[in-house]
Design a protein around this nucleic acid. Structure first.
Lengths: 350, 350
DNA sequence: CACCACACCGTAAACGTTTACAGATGTTGG
DNA sequence: CCAACATCTGTAAACGTTTACGGTGTGGTG
């Protein structure tokens, strides 16, 4: 792994100055003869431009960072899938950060923006603390936040609308004739937990249905926890006829328990998940799920960031992505089984 | 976004030379008084070290690239999930490349290694062409290949063992009393397709079962294609009692068709998938699947690369990761339903 | 023939660090 | 009081580019 050639090596071999080499390599006007010599030398030496030196001089790295809480989380992966091609098309490399849902790590990432190893950042923070806001205000490169950020924070901001999402789902269930609609939520001290819980309550009110504490069950955002929560719920309110689950894993847990209890889905109990992950289409019965547009949010965030990088210095923008209800068999019955929505993705192996 | 402070700014403010500043910031021995002044100035200015300049001088970027065919592919994501923490713990950033399964893009990535924007590369190529081998031989930074690479290629190499994997599955089916074991494969001109097809044939031979062309159905690695293939297969050989599917998506398609046809799983037909993705545990019945150790391969690859980066210049190493059969309900029946294997992962949303 | 315009090229400085080397300062011992 | 030495600090070069600026040679014009 010997030291590679530099423009100096080329200049020497071609008998010209390094300035000429640089000009040729950057397509600036040069005499044909010089160009020929330089290209020949470069070719023979197998020259490749040093990106680090170039970045130092040009003050651009052509890299963008994406910081997410957890590489294992399907919602973030959906974002990643959309972000990647947008950046790639614009000639940017993608640096991935997983903050393991630790706020200090998120602050770290923000801080490291000062190292200027990237030109910009897309971040989806778990929750937004004062420390976050402080760092964001002082950020030395453009940042786009996926999630909600207070009015006045000087960054672009792409939001989901879980309130409308939950409403869509609850109205859907209502339209199917369900009147005992329960909510199976995750911890309510998390951002999504709180938002989804409130949205559920609001949606009921909207429909003129009574809010019943017995119909709300708190668990956690995992399959096993979801199952446990639903078991409790069933014991307490046997006449429940629909479950609004705060994410897809909880909903899968619900399906497990309902099957074990001999309740038919959706005939006896309809089930709705949230996030519309790949799992929703894969389960059986396939799962009706509220998409909060993770993919779309990723795409929009990438586009906003690119605009900033191109020099747009407009006011910070806020984009809210509309939720969508993916209706499948767990509410609408077997007719909707296998209704493809393009989420059938290749997987190989090696 | 004004120009940030540099060590020059600090030096001026603290009344010392830039050399002293650098020394303090790198923890080299310095007089207390100087150290104090420098740290104070740095603090007040909100100084952050410029990573690009540092990289240029030190010839290390503290970045490592991972190139995969497709960000949407669960097998690669499993690798990513393991690679990320290993690199992070060692202080490396992760640059992600998605080559969209285009060989030219893979070559590009290899070529761009010469730009020295990363210290090393982990790559899982779709297939290995002569162009790949040429670039690998000339690579200007350590590379670890996930997949198989010919003897003599000067890079570390982490392999799956699909032959043993398929054998495990077929033997499992045999042990359950199945004798008409079909294979539903993807295109046989792909690396995994060819390997899995051959392994199936070999496993049958091994067990003294006859190889029957009628029992082999070629489709593609998607759910809908899998379903189509299985439908054809069922029409042709109604007495089939087990399906060895070349990946999980095909297997999900198989479950769809079998359910529609009124065949019970596993009572009438047992089904095995491959890759053991999250989908396997989520489906119903849950899917027995051959894990080729994507996660493990990612982890090993990252560790091998780190060793190289630490200066190990041993002979190229080849590590083969053992496959594992995750037995679930689609072969072993309801008793195995919900048998957790730790793949129950948190998902939030925001 | 003198002069100018022009195209091309080379010199050198700059980007922000790290570090070899030599100079400055202070300490110790004779 | 000076030599010898240790300790700390500053100067300058280097990493590999890009680019402003001025110099050179050519051809054309008056």
């Amino acid at each position: 792994m010997a030291d590679g050639p530099t423009i100096n090596t080329i200049a020497e071999r071609a008998g010209v100055s390094i300035a000429s080499v640089s000009r040729v390599l950057n397509g600036l006007p040069t005499r044909q003869e010089t160009e020929r010599k330089v290209l020949k030398a470069a070719e023979e030496l197998g020259y490749v431009r040093n990106a680090v030196a170039r970045s130092l001089k040009s003050r651009r790295t052509n890299q963008v960072a994406f910081a997410m809480a957890d590489v294992g989380n399907p919602a973030y992966l959906a974002m990643l899938r959309q972000i990647q091609p947008v950046l790639k098309a614009a000639g940017y490399r993608l640096v991935l950060h997983s903050t393991d849902a630790v706020a200090a790590d998120e602050i770290d990432v923000l801080h490291s923006l000062g190292e200027r190893y990237v030109d910009g950042l897309i971040m989806s923070p778990l929750r937004v603390t004062d420390a976050h806001l402080e760092m964001l205000a002082a950020a030395r490169a453009p940042v786009v936040i996926i999630g909600s950020v207070p009015e006045g924070t000087p960054v672009d901001n792409v939001r989901a609308d879980s309130r409308t999402g939950v409403r869509l789902a609850v109205h859907h269930l209502y339209a199917l004739g369900r009147r005992r609609i329960a909510m199976v939520n995750g911890p309510i001290d998390t951002v999504p937990g709180a938002a989804r819980g409130a949205a559920y309550r609001e949606a009921l009110e909207n429909l003129g249905l009574p809010y019943d504490d017995d119909l709300v069950q708190i668990g956690d955002f995992y399959r096993a926890e979801g199952a446990r929560a639903v078991a409790e719920l069933l014991a307490r309110v046997p006449d429940v006829d629909a479950l609004m689950c705060a994410n897809d894993l909880i909903a899968l847990g619900a399906l497990d328990v309902l099957r074990a209890a001999g309740r038919r889905v959706p005939d006896d109990v309809a089930v709705v998940g949230m996030d519309d992950t790949d799992l929703a289409a894969a389960s059986w019965p396939s799962l009706t799920s509220v998409s909060l547009g993770s993919a779309e949010r990723g795409k929009v965030a990438a586009e906003l960031l690119l605009e900033r990088l191109r020099g747009g210095d407009s006011e910070p923008r806020v984009v809210t992505v509309a939720p969508r209800l993916a209706v499948r068999a767990s509410t609408a019955g077997p007719a909707y089984e296998g209704a493809s929505d393009g989420s059938d993705r290749k997987e190989g192996g090696a």
